[in-house]
Design a protein around this nucleic acid. Structure first.
Lengths: 205, 205
DNA sequence: TCATTAATGGAACTGGAGTCCCGTGAAGCG
DNA sequence: CGCTTCACGGGACTCCAGTTCCATTAATGA
């Protein structure tokens, strides 16, 4: 019978060669526009022009601005750095905080993250992509907390992921809401605050 | 000479009567759309229709979606509640955290805040309006930290505003990035974490 | 290497967001 | 109360984001 046969998404049957080049060029161009002009000025026709790709192709493959941003996020998740290991909890947390701080103040990546968050608040699928992005990042760093528990630095039962989230949260809050300077001092304070709360057992049980 | 005489913004010379009614109706309608359909579906023609107001008027008075959201924020800032006083630092911080948590999970206000933040990441003037909004909210609650310092509960030199921000930050992080449940337990943990960090002197100096 | 057909790209088309113009209604003031 | 003119509202218009159609190109598998 084969009625209702679902058509495959374009780009899934022959993903090599030209299709891959188009995807790379479009994501690159989209990132450029977001960094230079922000989420509000991201329009698909413009991205197509910059990428040297047919407008039709961009609309067919991605369709909406938010879907394009979601795909950009998948790309970003693949190139996340391995965590550094300093040997102490506070050292590791500060390294993490500095990494986040540097990312958010980077002239290219900072605006890009703002745009990604704006897109995620507008569209559930993009929000899901963002959630997964942070999930992998947090999984990368959580072990440093677990090791601190095993060394006896932190109370038994401390939730490692919650501690890592506590490091990032104030930095994102500064980026999005408060507008206060996002400097190294802020990063260190975020790490120290998370460590202090973890020591006090706030994230245990 | 009087060349270059700056024209007054429409609505500033005769702000009473009809003009005020139009503003109220438009802001109400804009809030409704944001809560029901989100920032992505906010279009000025639709707002005008819902408000029972001429499309031309909305474009003349506000002009862009982000400007309308910024004005909505001014409206929201005016109706902020007075802080509650429990007598202890942790009690006050928990009251604040619960207030933020209830606001962000409220079926009307939650989506509205998401939209406001999305708008702020798209437009500097809206970002400035958001900054001022949080500034007033933080000023309302900061005294409870100052009082704790005076009672000797917290180290001398603790920055009160930084403590209040530390309470909100994890809750906003959950709303925007992680997507984890934003319940009362999360609120209490945010308050406890901020208190622990403050006790440890992270926000002193 | 060749056949198949997925995927791209150009060009014409469409719908609706945003603008402009001008007549009408009602604030504010004496 | 009436005058002045600010602000609103309707409707026509413009322009471009997003769609549709089809010819061309090239990825894949034999």
């Amino acid at each position: 019978m084969e009625l209702e046969s679902r058509e495959a998404e374009p780009g899934t049957v022959r993903p090599g060669g030209r299709t891959a080049r188009v995807r790379a060029a479009v994501l690159q161009a989209a990132g450029d526009v977001l960094a230079e002009r922000g989420f509000a000025h991201l329009d698909l026709a413009d991205v197509a022009r910059r990428a040297g790709v047919g407008k039709t192709t961009v609309y067919r493959r991605w369709g909406t601005v938010t879907a394009l941003v979601a795909d950009l996020l998948v790309d970003m998740a693949e190139q996340s750095l391995p965590r550094s290991r300093t040997g102490s909890l506070i050292g590791d947390l500060k390294a993490n905080a500095r990494l986040v701080q540097r990312t958010l103040t980077d002239p290219r990546q900072g605006p890009l993250f703002k745009a990604v968050i704006a897109a995620a608040t507008c569209d559930p699928r993009t929000a899901e992509a963002l959630r997964r992005f942070y999930d992998t990042r947090i999984s990368e760093w959580a072990p440093c907390v677990q090791e601190a528990v095993e060394r006896g630095e932190l109370p038994e039962g401390t939730d490692p992921r919650e501690v890592i989230r506590a490091v990032s949260a104030p930095l994102y809050y500064r980026l999005l809401a408060s507008g206060d300077p996002l400097d190294e001092a802020a990063a260190d304070r975020a790490a120290e605050a998370a460590a202090a709360a973890a020591h006090a057992g706030v994230y245990a049980r």
